[in-house]
């Protein structure tokens, strides 16, 4: 699975890296970044859940 954050939409709510610390992390300003765009199968659920917690709908996943 692939995951991406649309940096134009991300406003640093910080929900993604709190919920899915294996997939996302925060930069120095508290904005989300993807650790590795290819998500290992073990973390696919985490990544999928993160889509639902982002108030800006900035996170997308693809097979």
């Amino acid at each position: 699975m692939k995951v991406a954050i649309d940096q134009g939409r991300c406003q640093g709510h910080g929900r993604c890296y709190e919920l899915a610390p294996e997939v996302f992390t925060d930069d120095d300003s508290g904005y989300g970044t993807v650790i590795a765009p290819d998500v290992p199968p073990a973390y696919a659920d985490q990544a999928q859940d993160a889509v639902n917690v982002c108030p800006e709908r900035a996170i997308s996943t693809a097979e």
Binding site: Q11, H13, R15, L19, N52, V53, P55, R57
Partner: peptide, 13 residues
């Protein structure tokens, strides 16, 4: 789904 807007959203989040 924790995508509520209690802290606002957009640039003024």
């Amino acid at each position: 789904d924790k995508s509520h807007l209690a802290f606002g959203g957009g640039p003024h989040r």
